[in-house]
Amino acid sequence: MARRRIPTADGNAAVRAVAAGSSDRTERTTAVRFSLEELAFRAPGNSVEVRVPPLGVTQCVEGPRHTRGTPPNVIETDADTWLALVLGTLGWDAAVTSGVVAASGRRADLSALLPLFPQASPTPVTGSA
């Protein structure tokens, strides 16, 4: 299981602040990193690598363990898109279709795991299946 580096109270506070519209860099960075930790906590494993450069990366989802080289299942996006996905203001399918999320590999689909914090967001999910 992934080790938490951000205290849950601090992470949840940052997520709530971002959901309320905060553009504070520290809060947004904490929200991204905390949400990556939360994803790894909810879907432990090493078969998918989720990258939100330059803020963070995590491995998650059960399956074959990746040990070296480029992982076979990679998801990459920017911080704003990642936060919209975890808050539920952007749906997975819409993000992939529009190209704001790059997802490669058979297991690179987080639609069943997102949003992580829908209760924090004042606006509904769009473009999800």
Rank of each mutant, 00 (worst) to 15 (best):
27 E>V: 11
126 T>F: 06
70 T>H: 11
59 Q>N: 10
87 L>F: 09
79 A>Y: 01
59 Q>D: 10
90 L>G: 00
61 V>H: 10
10 D>E: 13
124 P>D: 10
121 S>G: 15
50 V>C: 01
98 S>Q: 12
100 V>T: 15
1 M>W: 08
75 I>K: 09
79 A>V: 04
30 T>N: 00
17 A>H: 02
71 P>A: 14
70 T>S: 13
72 P>D: 09
50 V>E: 01
129 A>L: 14
60 C>W: 02
43 A>I: 11
108 A>L: 04
120 A>I: 08
58 T>C: 14
81 T>G: 05
69 G>Y: 07
114 L>P: 00
49 E>L: 13
50 V>Y: 00
60 C>P: 03
129 A>G: 15
129 A>Q: 13
17 A>W: 07
100 V>R: 15
92 W>C: 08
80 D>E: 15
18 V>M: 04
95 A>Q: 04
20 A>V: 00
20 A>F: 06
61 V>G: 00
108 A>P: 07
43 A>R: 15
121 S>T: 13
77 T>A: 07
43 A>E: 14
11 G>N: 06
93 D>E: 14
74 V>H: 01
31 A>D: 05
14 A>Y: 03
74 V>A: 03
99 G>N: 09
11 G>C: 02
55 L>E: 14
42 R>M: 11
78 D>N: 13
73 N>C: 07
35 S>G: 05
43 A>Y: 12
47 S>K: 07
100 V>Q: 13
33 R>C: 06
45 G>H: 01
14 A>K: 07
67 T>E: 12
111 S>W: 08
58 T>F: 04
106 R>C: 01
54 P>V: 11
13 A>D: 12
94 A>I: 00
58 T>A: 11
129 A>M: 11
72 P>K: 02
54 P>H: 02
16 R>G: 00
38 E>H: 12
14 A>Q: 04
90 L>K: 12
86 V>G: 09
71 P>S: 12
119 Q>K: 10
66 H>V: 08
36 L>S: 09
45 G>F: 00
47 S>Y: 01
129 A>D: 15
127 G>N: 05
15 V>H: 08
84 A>C: 12
67 T>H: 13
78 D>R: 11
97 T>W: 05
6 I>V: 14
121 S>Y: 11
43 A>T: 12
65 R>L: 10
118 P>V: 03
69 G>Q: 07
21 G>E: 06
32 V>P: 01
3 R>G: 11
104 S>L: 08
122 P>K: 12
8 T>I: 14
35 S>I: 04
116 L>I: 02
73 N>R: 03
107 R>I: 04
109 D>L: 11
60 C>N: 04
39 L>F: 09
123 T>V: 13
126 T>V: 13
117 F>H: 15
33 R>H: 07
106 R>F: 07
90 L>E: 08
113 L>C: 05
81 T>R: 06
127 G>K: 08
6 I>T: 15
99 G>Y: 01
50 V>N: 02
71 P>D: 06
128 S>H: 14
13 A>T: 11
18 V>L: 05
68 R>S: 14
114 L>N: 06
115 P>C: 05
125 V>I: 15
110 L>P: 07
70 T>L: 08
103 A>Q: 09
75 I>V: 15
117 F>P: 04
105 G>C: 14
121 S>K: 03
30 T>Y: 00
49 E>C: 10
101 V>K: 06
42 R>E: 14
37 E>G: 07
83 L>N: 06
117 F>I: 00
76 E>T: 15
74 V>W: 05
125 V>E: 14
